[in-house]
Design a protein around this nucleic acid. Structure first.
Lengths: 258, 258
DNA sequence: CAAATAGTGTCTCTTAGACAATATCGT
DNA sequence: ACGATATTGTCTAAGAGACACTATTTG
């Protein structure tokens, strides 16, 4: 992967980047039974936005998505999935996105023809993180960067609300076909932990007995001989992912009917 | 959808199109137990290529894919699915793709800096057609346009071989989740017909009794009170797709474990 | 009646899904 | 002993998957 120092695209002529294409990233944050999304707030604009960026000419689109997520979260090696792309020619027409506001906000003289106002297809990815490990970082034009509950989103720019909805739908379908959890759970985790994770992501309750049976049958987790001390209660067993099965399921899919 | 007259991109300065992005289309053709892919052969280049094109600034990427397929096949209203995109910065480096060859082939003076040699991310779609209904049409730089068996592909340009493989993998996964056949079967079809279709697409044999049971249980097909006269053999019953169930399954997915 | 194709039923075994009592831990 | 959480087994119903004989049709 190429390393790029963080620069402010607004101050470039755009020639470093591929034209007409951008990346947006639905960064989901899970922790302790709660699911959030990371959003940016460009000062002086009333709406929030997904973390996004442009694609350097020497990187792949996937790497651009990884870079964007890393810049906002500091985290590497996240779980990434390509969702869809959004190509409506009018998708970035938004009353909150214009030269005046951007100039007021940044203090730069941009002009009406700045390349940032060109038509951009967006390719959307989602990412899963443990939000307790993340200190959200604002970017070159958004000072605020905060986690929002997916049930309580602020007004969003462009088609970003649809992107979040689509990403969540796709994530939920993926849960039945791809393993999730490597980045969200400690190396050794308990059944209640992974059970809560799936319940939260799917937003529905899952019978813990059947859930456990299926995880073990698919072979995606192995039970360890250790327990976790959780204080005043019965100590739950620890489990870990079976690396081979997990990797195969990541690459080739699996059928986990939970 | 916007209508665009067919023009030769090579003769434009590229300003009609989005930069750095293109569409490639894996057009599968099914007929009578055989599965093929439509490929183009640019004269003077030793390799074959997927039908592809560029995206007009006033259309969506999906419409561009539809347009490309229509230009090659003459067909409308096909089954389309977005697969993946391909963004390796070196993906279009190919010894067969250079100014000299293109100039020799077309007779135009293009120059080394023609925009067609710019970096292009490709978004790949697949399409399903009944190849017996198609008269393949060459395009502005490829006179030959032919169906190839997916088991016997010629040398392909760029990353097109990978695209075909990926599209086929994705199609096969989709078969379990989305209904297929509306564009490939007559309005009224028989069980042997749809059974052969699925066997061919999946390249494996399916027990016809279990297959029929599942189609009926999911409700995707309705049995009619008519039979099809096939000459010297027992006349098979006709079926048709249940429009409501089919549409819902297209939009929301289904679980067809065949 | 032969050749070719269509059509259909049953059995077994596995799994999904519903369901609740017991074990453990710390205080 | 209690409060809180973890752990585990059984039953039933449905479905997957294996399997082969009978029915039509025409020449």
């Amino acid at each position: 992967m190429n390393e790029h120092t963080i620069i402010n695209p607004l101050l470039t002529d755009g020639s470093l980047f591929l034209s007409n294409i951008s990346v947006d990233n639905v960064i989901f944050g899970y922790h302790d039974k709660s699911l959030k999304v990371l959003l940016l707030h460009p000062t002086a604009i009333k709406k929030w936005a997904l973390p996004g960026g442009y694609i350097y000419k020497d990187e792949t689109i996937e790497n651009a998505a990884i870079r964007v997520a890393k810049d906002r979260t500091g985290l590497d090696n996240l779980y990434f999935k390509q969702c869809k792309f959004y190509s409506d020619p009018n998708r970035t027409k938004d009353e909150e996105f214009n030269t005046q506001k951007l100039e007021d906000m940044t203090g730069y003289k941009l002009g009406k023809d700045h390349w940032i106002f060109n038509q951009h297809i967006s390719s959307c990815f989602y990412t899963l993180t443990d939000y307790s490990k993340v200190t959200p970082q604002g970017d070159y034009y958004a000072s605020e960067c905060l986690w929002f509950s997916i049930n309580d989103l602020p007004p969003l720019m462009f088609d970003h609300k649809k992107m979040i909805k689509d990403a969540l739908d796709i994530l939920r379908i993926h849960l039945y076909h791809f393993p999730v959890g490597y980045e969200l759970l400690p190396e050794k985790f308990t059944i209640p932990e992974i059970h809560s994770l799936y319940e939260t992501l799917l937003n529905k309750s899952l019978d813990v007995r059947n859930f456990t049976k299926k995880l073990l049958k698919v072979g995606i987790v192995d039970k360890l001989d250790e327990r976790k001390n959780i204080g005043a209660h019965r100590a739950p067993f620890l489990y870990k992912f079976n690396k081979d099965v997990y990797q195969d399921a990541l690459e080739n899919g699996m059928a986990l009917f939970i």
